[in-house]
Design a protein around this nucleic acid. Structure first.
Lengths: 212, 212
DNA sequence: TTAGTTTTGTACACTTGTGTCCAGTAGTAC
DNA sequence: GTACTACTGGACACAAGTGTACAAAACTAA
């Protein structure tokens, strides 16, 4: 019958899978992160994951299906993930600041200078790929909505001064964050990246005291 | 003898080239802009340029050589080109503002939502491709240096208030510009893009009067 | 016209990648 | 042990792309 590709659970019968799915997805993520989505062929992906191409197709079905899993994993471990965990009532500004600081640190210490997988992906696939491209576009739009919510919350909680146009400020923040991630592929100095980011949050009206 | 690939001049003897080189480069640019550098095969490029593959290799030598010409053409017609024309003594802030406004306009009205060729290219090739990737990285670094020079000039000419850390501010500007270009592939509304950009230049300390 | 020069159409000999198929292998359930 | 099931290695038949080679074509100069 139709094979269950997206089956995280181990089947209770039959020959067991000869590899850990999570490890394989992680390996695929690292490969795509470096090479880009389109340039990563099924052959190369299978090699990077240390599995056969037949196992690749059997377990994941297609490159696109794997990419969806890769993006889910990336989203959970990306430096901006803490922003998505903020609940109503939680402090916002300290998280925003630490996320920015972390982006600078992680991007600058990545010896391969890969930047952000989502940012790279949007640059590569938005408007080109209907499946993964659309997924990435959605991620960016959600990031914008999230920032609108968080900025409103921060103002309401008196963590920062009033904002005239929250929608515009949210987009400025997302634009800066994307640009920072791309720029980090070229400017490899953490202090310099942080100096720019620090500047940016001060413009937002974040009190200097929050910057430790 | 070794063929002169990068020969813009028409040879004075032999069979004449059956196509206009500038048009072919323009067609290649539009193709790469949409598809990306790595995904553009010599075959597809030749088709897009409406020439034979043999003519392609004969006239340009390689994909990389063509890409270099493409980038030169792009650089001259990109919306941020006016920044590179500013001489010492020229006004800076009006140009900065009009460049940002133009980026918003051009990106939003591009029906293919291709964003910026250089930004896309950096996301795709920085740290991966030694030839074109390195060229793009250089372009970004030059943009940072240029902004340092222009910000200093603007302050000196009393077009904007003093800046504490010019290097950091220049990088913030470049990061925002890159991010804006990437974001424009997802946020397709010119007014929204401009609202964010307007916000950003106000943070820079540009007087509201300059924003017409 | 003839010689000299350069471009162009087509073909060649690869290399790389694709998705599928299936026998063989390695487990579980009874 | 005997079913039953699912994963794996290797092969297959294409499809696409690479860079080069070379004769025919198309021009200039003498």
């Amino acid at each position: 019958m139709g094979k269950d590709h997206n089956t995280p659970q181990t089947a209770r019968t039959g020959r067991p899978t000869g590899f850990a799915r999570a490890d394989a997805v992680q390996a695929a993520m690292n490969f795509v992160w470096k090479k880009g989505f389109l340039a990563a062929s099924a052959k190369e992906l299978a090699e990077a994951m240390e599995i056969q191409r037949s196992s690749f197709y059997n377990s994941f079905g297609s490159r696109e299906a794997l990419f969806r899993e890769v993006l889910a994993v990336y989203g959970a471990q990306a430096p901006d993930a803490p922003l998505r965990q903020i609940k109503s009532g939680d402090p916002v500004v300290p998280v925003m600041v630490s996320v920015l600081r972390n982006v600078c640190h992680i991007r600058a210490t990545d010896t391969e200078a890969r930047g952000c997988l989502v940012c790279n992906g949007v640059a590569e696939l938005a408007g080109v790929d209907d499946e993964i491209g659309a997924l990435l576009e959605k991620a960016v739009k959600q990031q914008v909505s999230l920032m609108e919510r968080l900025l409103l919350q921060a103002v309401r909680q008196k963590e920062m001064p009033a904002i005239h146009d929250v929608a515009a400020t949210a987009k400025s923040f997302v634009a800066f964050l994307i640009g920072l991630n791309i720029l980090s592929k070229v400017v490899r100095n953490e202090k310099q990246l942080w100096a720019s980011s620090r500047q940016f949050v001060l413009w937002l009206g974040v009190p200097k005291a929050v910057l430790s």
